[in-house]
């Protein structure tokens, strides 16, 4: 995924309107682009062409359904390990080797490795955390969510 900002002049007002409008939802109808194009004041073909371009520019992370793994019976858990500096690369390799590790970040804290486990069944979380502890000899702190406060976040393009 693109991590650097686009230069200011790449997106025009219409592109920004598309991003801001389609963030709020996309219809489940036979011709959804036609419906949204009407709201934005574009033709269906022009809207699709611009979306293809935005996707190629890396402005769109995903266009479509956002699935909730927990509603499907799976589980997520944020985990953290305090990794001694001299073991960091080795531990990273061992942690990342598990397909259940969805993302993993180094952070500027005594607890310096933070990763998310995503499993298809809730009991998978402690299984994988236990395997990582056995493989690394380090304690895996588990921070399962107890309550979620959702969600005012919006990116204004």
């Amino acid at each position: 995924m693109r991590r650097d900002p686009l230069p200011d002049n790449v997106l025009d007002k219409t592109d920004r309107l598309i991003i801001n409008t389609l963030q709020d939802g996309f219809p489940l109808t036979a011709h959804p682009f036609s419906e949204m194009a009407g709201k934005i004041g574009l033709s269906e073909a022009e809207l699709i062409k611009r979306l293809v371009n935005l996707r190629e520019l890396g402005v769109i992370t995903r266009f479509g359904p956002l699935y909730d793994v927990e509603a499907m019976g799976g589980a997520f858990c944020l985990c953290a390990i305090a990794v001694p500096a001299e073991q960091f690369e080795e531990v990273m390799t061992k942690v990342n080797a598990h397909p259940e590790v969805a993302h993993n970040y180094e952070r500027n804290h005594h607890l310096n490795m933070w990763f998310v486990l995503a499993t298809e069944h809730p009991e998978g979380i402690s299984d994988v955390a236990g395997m990582i502890e056995a493989e690394t000899g380090l304690k895996v702190l588990q921070f399962p969510k107890q309550e979620e406060f959702f969600i005012g976040f919006r990116v204004t393009a």
Binding site: M1, R2, I18, I19, L22, Q23, D24, G25, F26, P27, L28, L51, G58, V59, I60, T61, R62, F63, G64, P65, L66, Y67, D68, V155, A157
Partner: peptide, 8 residues
């Protein structure tokens, strides 16, 4: 959760 555009 929703069907939408997720901006980067």
């Amino acid at each position: 959760r929703r069907i939408a555009l997720a901006p980067n």
